[in-house]
Amino acid sequence: MSAANQLYQEVILDHNRKPRNWGKLDDASRHAEGLNPLCGDHIWVYLKLNDKRIEGISFEGQSCAICKASASMMTHAVKGKSIDEALTLGQEFRDMSTGKLDPQSGDHHLGRLTVFAGVRDLPTRVKCAILPWHTLHSAIHSIEQVSTEGEADPVPGAGLERTDHA
């Protein structure tokens, strides 16, 4: 099965159709906006932190299926986790998406998030999968707007290349 067919499977399509934790979080203590100019993905992540723990999280925006499903599964995965655990998970997710972490190795906490492993073979789509994690990272660190481009990129050298051209 090809990389794309592997990626567009039921779990991801289902999260795309019915995103979990969708919408604004009324009592959010922090939020951040994420942009991926290549795709036009544009999402907001809302966070409610309590004693270094993610008590509440939600997201909304306009994005491709990979980004939306990734955001949906991310919110599900980090809810109730400590900030440190969430940041570690984010790093593992990025490493998996860029091929630096082998999801088969077992030496990680990704669980069901490994359905995104296939993006590593679709270099133009890696950013879509990672954007929600970028945005979560920024919300935690209270950076208002991030982009998968340029200086605001919190994972420089992650192999995210600018391919925006007409």
């Binding site: 794309a4 990626l7 567009y8 290549l38 795709c39 036009g40 993905d41 994005s63 491709c64 299926a65 990979i66 679709l122 133009t124 789509r125 879509c128």
Partner: peptide, 8 residues
């Protein structure tokens, strides 16, 4: 989304 269209 158009990007999903493109990949497929």
């Amino acid at each position: 989304h158009p990007h999903d269209v493109g990949t497929l």
